[in-house]
Design a binder for these strands. Structure first.
Lengths: 340, 340
DNA sequence: TTGTATGCGTTATCAG
DNA sequence: CTGATAACGCATACAA
């Protein structure tokens, strides 16, 4: 900013016009003569004039930017979501400001306070696995900040939510395993405080019920940091493998958890015929090449990002209060990779 | 922003003070009595006052935000870099605004214009593989915008640059392959217009020279979009495999290229005893589990991000013109995964 | 110690 | 069609 000297005022001075005339000419107002318009536009181009977005924001009472909070950018699933968000935002002239919670509720709150200090027009958030106090977010929402939840939603806040069909995904994955003959399927899941975890558990459960296989409590473990901390995954798996009934397959509750499981199995040299990872890993280039073989529930992260951004922009641009709207992206795919 | 009504003016009115007193009290100025300070601070807290960052920016002539342009966020290497940048920026009260070029020079330019329309205090950029016209960037730099290049640098712009030790990485990788007995090592590289490509090529070459193995021109292919377009990788590999002297190992010039190679080999069912990917893939959780076996040059992406941000902040905060400074991160590691 | 006035760059309102 | 002026929210030089 220090470097950008050219303002509307400079142009006005250079051309012997008033700032308002210049401003109007630049915005192609109908009440400016073609001659002056041309004059101004050409000069503006020559001196590389760029309107100061900050001044515009102050005047317009909006920043043309949206905030995005996810647990971690360097997580393929969320970076795909951001990608989708950016593509939409970009086309509508919005800047995306991203922040990461690193699965810490405290850091999430800090980011929230920071982003909302009058510098974003709306928020897309996927809450951290650790978050259990939603009061601040709720207050923001009540005060009128447009919010869209993506993937990890908060149910009592009535606003747009974009989620994958977690139930279906988990159901299909579990069914796939059962059909393959596995009967002792372990589940490592995120905290059930997240609705996605509960939905996935329901899918897991219903597939069992349908096949008349009882669910064994001691094959289910919950962890708190979404797999970010490998030791948590390790501890959970240690528990599973200390049981008399050892699992013959594992359903990982998120991409990080799943890769953690793979690592564990490799480290411990445990042979497991097949695994299912319920993961949002869109980089199929890679998942396709993983060893041990892995069946993947691909969640349409990019599309979810696009959907969230569209919804948020609609919220931002229409002032009228919106009704609750939940968008469930249906295309959860099961990607099956044959054992080699 | 619509939602945040509370301003300094409101507080002043509520408390029967002037806006300047309130402003000063909030900034803990020494020329305000403890009593009023306390009064103001408590009231501010009560009404959830948050200073309007946009107004502050306009006044202070800085936005407390930095722009980051990379080819793609959903690329583990760059997301790690962003991660590093964010951690530093965050600690210094800066917001990070990211944009992606998708390896398109045109889109890069658009982002550049957008970000620099007076809304960022500095820029960290890793230029797209397609970029060959640096005039706009150069102009920005001349006009005083603090810029730091990371990974993909432009040599004629005299500013801080953060790069990995590409030469060493490629050298070690190639040497490793040669020691394993491979003699016809293919190289799929980014365009040599990028210095990283040239450095890597030099490492590749010197390892050959040292081992007295001639380099075969027809085992070297260049591509333009960093591996983003699989068909490019495919075409390059097709050429390599159409030669009479087929490669017995491949050095991939970037992470995307390398995963592209893996995909190709798998699709074509080509058995290759070992591969080396010169890739910036920090997610070793995954690379470790890839099949076919892969030896990886890990580039310290996170650390590079940190370094770039530190350098940029130093540029932003000290007004004095800085001397050119090049920081080469040395810890390029060779991660070797044994064949299974 | 506190208040008044001014300006940051832009746009909108109201005159001319 | 064009110009002067006020306002957005905040910070600061200058008064008091």
């Amino acid at each position: 900013m220090k470097f950008s000297a050219v303002t509307i005022k400079d142009i006005a001075r250079d051309l012997g016009l008033s700032t308002s005339t210049v401003s109007r000419a630049l915005r192609d107002s109908h009440e400016i003569s073609e001659a002056t318009k041309k004059l101004v536009l050409e000069h503006a181009q020559k001196v590389h004039f760029k309107p100061n977005r900050i001044a515009q924001s102050l005047k317009e009472k909006k920043s043309l930017s949206i905030g995005v909070i996810v647990c971690e950018i360097a997580n393929s699933y969320f970076s795909q979501i951001i990608n989708g968000i950016e593509s939409i935002a970009y086309n509508h002239g919005y800047t995306v400001i991203t922040a990461q919670s690193m699965e810490s509720a405290e850091r999430e709150l800090m980011n929230l306070e920071y982003l909302t200090s009058s510098s974003i027009d709306g928020l897309i958030i996927s809450v951290s696995t650790e978050t259990n106090n939603f009061s601040y977010l709720k207050k923001l929402h009540e005060r009128g900040l447009p919010i869209v939840f993506v993937d990890r939603v908060i149910e009592d806040i009535e606003t747009h939510k974009v989620i994958a069909d977690n139930y279906k995904g988990a159901y299909k994955a579990t069914k796939h395993l059962i059909e393959k003959g596995y009967k002792r399927i372990g589940l490592i899941s995120n905290n059930p405080s997240l609705s996605i975890s509960r939905e996935r558990f329901d899918g897991f459960k219903d597939a069992h019920i349908e096949a008349k296989i009882p669910i064994k409590e001691n094959l289910i473990e919950y962890i708190s940091h979404g797999g970010m901390i490998y030791e948590e995954v390790e501890a959970a798996l240690n528990k599973l493998y200390k049981n008399k009934v050892k699992p013959d397959a594992i359903l990982g509750g998120s991409d990080k958890i799943t890769t953690g499981c793979l690592r564990y199995l490799k480290n411990k040299k445990i042979k497991i015929p097949e695994q299912v990872g319920l993961i949002g890993f869109s980089n199929t280039d890679l998942t396709d090449l993983l060893y041990p073989p892995l069946t993947v529930i691909r969640q349409p992260a990019y599309e979810m990002g696009e959907a969230s951004a569209s919804l948020l922009l609609s919220l931002i641009e229409s002032k009228r209060p919106q009704t609750k709207f939940e968008k469930r992206i249906q295309s959860t795919e099961l990607i099956i990779r044959k054992s080699t």
